[in-house]
Structure formats: C-alpha cells, structure tokens
Amino acid sequence: MEHKAAIVLAMFGTTVESALKGLLNIHAKMTVRFPAIPVRIAFTSNIIRRRWQKRAADPAYLHAHPDIPVEILGVRTVLAVIADLQDQGYDSIVLQPTHIAMGEEYLDLGTYVDSLLRMGTVKKTKYKPFHKIALGRPALGTYGPIHPYADDITAAAKALAADAEMARAARAALVYMGHGNEHFPSAGSYVELARRMRTLHPDVLTLIGNVEGFPSLDDVIGELQRSEAKRVLLKPFMVVAGDHSVKDMAGPEEDSWKSVLEQEGFEVHAVERGLGEIDDFANIFVRNAAEAAADAGIFLK
C-alpha cells in the first residue's frame, strides 16, 4: 500500500508578532526543500496557543494585523495536528522540533511518538493509524552513535559565522542569551558550542549565558571581566526574538541583561534577531528532518 508522508514542526511558539519571522522562515525553508510534502506548524505552549486563539476571535486584532498567517491564527497542539493529518490519510509523520537543546520539551515529544507508534488494531497491521513516525533532533543534537552531537554543535557554530563577523567588526565580545533549564543538564551543549565558536573564530570572545540554570549572566560577566572586554554584542540564543529578547535581554528595566552589563561598565549593542531568522541556522532543522526521515525509512519527495 502507498504511504503518505507529512512533516510537523513542533515549535514552542511566540506571542510577539515581529518574532514570528524566525518560525515562518524555518517553515519556508522546509517547504522549499520538500515541495510535495505538507508541512504543518504546531505550538507546544498552551499559554501561547490560547493567546492566538483569543486574537483569532477578535475582529479588531485581525483588522490591525492582516499579515498574520492563518497557520498561526489557527495554531494547534502537536497531537491535534498529527490527528488531522492521520484523518487525511497521512500515516508517515516526521515530527521535527525547533528546539535548541534536548530538554524537557524534546523528551515530551519522544513520549508522544512512542505512544502513537504503539497504537494498533485487532485485525490487520495495515489498519494501524500510523505506519512510521520519526522524531528529528534539536539544533544541538541528542545522544546516540548515529548522529554524533559534536557534529551538530559544529554545524550550529558554522551557521553563526555572520554573528562572529559582526562582533569582530565592532571589536566586541559576542554574548548570547539562551533560555536554559534548571532541571535538565543541557548547559553542557551551550558551553561546548561557545567553545567551538571560539575555536572557529579565535579573535572573537563568544559566551553563552542562560535565563535559567548554568551558565548564568553572572558567569558571563566574570568571563568578560577576566578577558578585559569593553564592548558586547548581545543576541538571543533562541529561535525567536520573543518576550525574553524584548524584555529580559534588551529591555529598559534595570535587571535586563543589557542594563546589567551596562551597569558593569560594558558598552552594549543588542540585536533582537532570533536564530530562526538566520537562513543557515533554519536549515539545520531542515537537515535534521531529512535525516530523521531517512533513518526511519520515510520517503520525503
């Protein structure tokens, strides 16, 4: 029997309209790479989905924001999107997260895949809801011998070459603000990425700090002071330049990263541009989806 394939992009989401560019760029890159395959968007954040549902029901908001895509206004959960695809006859799904590291949300997606694949039928196997479901890797990779995480970190570092060049031109240290996690040991990937960036661009001090967990902003400040840096190019190490970027990173509040760094005597230039807006970085997720499909034996046209 013929098996129909589809791709689902599992995104945390954002409520900041300008930040949608990062998500939509990833979607656009995926549709260009696989023009004959439906590519659907799902948001994993309940709060963000509810905000968009409220906006979609508000005529005044729709009139003021005519450029918001229908896919965002009607965004659904991962399971809802997969259920719709199954109802439309798609039984081979590539679930590609747009997460940075292997944290709790990525592990949650793994449980979804395991549960869906266990669904069967009493009669013939061919009547199972799904033939195959593949879970793609986050940007900085995951564990296992098939796709070494170190290669993913190197690919991510190379995709950020333009950031290093921007910092070099400004004679500034390159500081990224990541999200991080207090409960999962994903910080090692961030630290290793910063080290890889410094290896590729030895004349640019690259550091990554996290909003949650290690390394913190204090850790970053310590490294900047030890290196006697004077200027800082500050960027979000997140797929979108959403609330964290607007408020926590570059906001006017005295506890924003920009304000704290300036209080410490650094000259700071903040660039509110999500990683998803960088074509080379967006293509990492396209590559990961293609490799997940190939590993699972799912044919993507």
Rank of each mutant, 00 (worst) to 15 (best):
A83Y: 05
R195G: 04
S216Y: 05
D295V: 09
A289S: 09
L275P: 00
S245R: 05
E182L: 01
H131P: 05
A290E: 13
V16D: 11
V268I: 10
A170V: 00
T111V: 10
W257G: 01
K128N: 15
P129H: 01
E71D: 12
L261N: 08
N210C: 15
K124S: 14
A42R: 02
F184N: 03
S186I: 14
P236M: 12
F43R: 06
S259K: 11
K54R: 12
K126G: 03
T111W: 12
P97V: 08
K4A: 14
D152N: 09
I72K: 00
T154I: 08
L193A: 02
A42H: 00
V39G: 00
T199C: 02
P138T: 11
P66K: 10
G222S: 14
G265Q: 13
G209I: 06
V75N: 06
M177W: 00
F34R: 07
Y90R: 01
A157E: 06
P185A: 10
I41R: 03
A282I: 03
R51V: 06
S256A: 01
A60Q: 12
T121Y: 11
S186D: 06
L275H: 01
Q88R: 07
D151P: 04
D219Y: 06
V240F: 05
L73K: 00
G13A: 11
G74K: 04
E2M: 13
I298V: 02
Q225D: 04
P69I: 07
H269D: 09
G141V: 06
A159R: 07
